[in-house]
């Protein structure tokens, strides 16, 4: 490949290398800048920070002054947890139903189960608000769970479907031929083999729920505040440096989760293959 480097090839390598470098810088720099900013000593959001301190983390963990943030964070964790659990169970069942059926109706069902990934969830958020209000149901965390559930289920559905497609049918045939019941085969063969796929999907679903704005924007209220909406409020009013501290906490949490998930499910391989 590299034995004859014409000027055109050199210019290609330079261009590609330069743009790829810029792309990596654009991807990484904002995250690093936020983390650095969170350790600032001043009220102003300055980069580089004039001095380093844990002042804003202290403010963030102050149980009195940051109580609304803590409530919002706990609400978000609660909703994300339940939406992920329920969404995962439903999605795994649906994926099992669809993989081995090649009828066009199954493909149509697959497409509709995946549709919340590309349809504007903001339109859905307003639709859900109108739906619940027409039915006369008052906003609650349960409504948020229902709303998030629909939007995040496709993540689990997709990864589970991918694991099931890679599953060798010969294994199940062998199990059946050896006299195993269908449920026993599922429990001892299918489930262990697709668990990493389910876990990777559930991880992405949980993050998507924690991060969800379009649905929470319409379904959350002052009493059922959610973390991203609370942070948006903090950004709109005064540029509170505590947001940077929240960012620091979330980024570290995500990093730890990512490393754990990568060990357990091969997340990074799963996404690229």
């Amino acid at each position: 490949m590299s034995q004859r480097s014409t000027p055109a090839d050199i210019s290609f390598n330079l261009t590609v290398g330069l743009i790829a470098g810029i792309a990596i810088l654009i991807l990484v720099a904002p995250v690093l800048i936020v983390i650095a900013t969170s350790f600032t000593t001043t009220q102003a959001l300055r980069f580089p920070p004039p001095g380093l301190s844990l002042r804003w983390y202290g403010e963030l963990f102050d149980p009195v002054r940051s109580a609304p943030i803590h409530t919002a964070a706990l609400n978000s964790l609660w909703v994300a947890g339940w939406a992920t659990v329920i969404g995962s169970v439903l999605s795994v069942l649906a994926a099992l139903a669809i993989t081995r059926v090649s009828r066009p109706s199954a493909r149509a069902l697959e497409a509709s189960f995946l549709s919340p990934l590309v349809l504007p969830t903001l339109s859905y958020g307003l639709a859900a608000l109108m739906f619940f209000s027409v039915l006369g149901i008052r906003p609650s965390l349960n409504l948020l769970i229902a709303g998030h559930l629909v939007v995040i289920a496709p993540f689990v559905f997709r990864t589970t479907l991918a694991s099931l497609t890679q599953l060798d049918p010969a294994l199940l045939e062998a199990s059946a031929n050896l006299g195993a019941s269908r449920f026993y085969s599922f429990r001892r063969i299918t489930l262990p083999l697709i668990t990493p796929g389910i876990a990777a999907g559930a991880f992405l679903a949980f993050i998507a729920s924690m991060d969800n704005v379009p649905v929470s924007l319409f379904l959350s209220t002052a009493r059922t505040s959610m973390l991203p909406i609370r942070m948006w409020g903090m950004m709109e009013s005064t540029l509170d440096v505590r947001i940077a501290a929240i960012a620091g906490v979330l980024i570290v949490a995500i990093l730890v989760l990512m490393v754990v998930m990568d060990r357990f499910t091969g997340l990074t391989r799963r996404v690229s293959a």
Binding site: A29, P30, I33, A44, F47, P228, M235, T268
Partner: peptide
């Protein structure tokens, strides 16, 4: 590289937006 790419994807959209305020502001980066 996958890690570098996934990192921003898994960081809250609100936080990424916040980061850009720090970068684009009048006294920004």
């Amino acid at each position: 590289l996958i890690f570098i790419i996934l990192m921003p994807l898994l960081t809250s959209v609100v936080i990424r937006t916040f980061a850009w305020i720090v970068i684009l502001a009048r006294e920004g980066v």
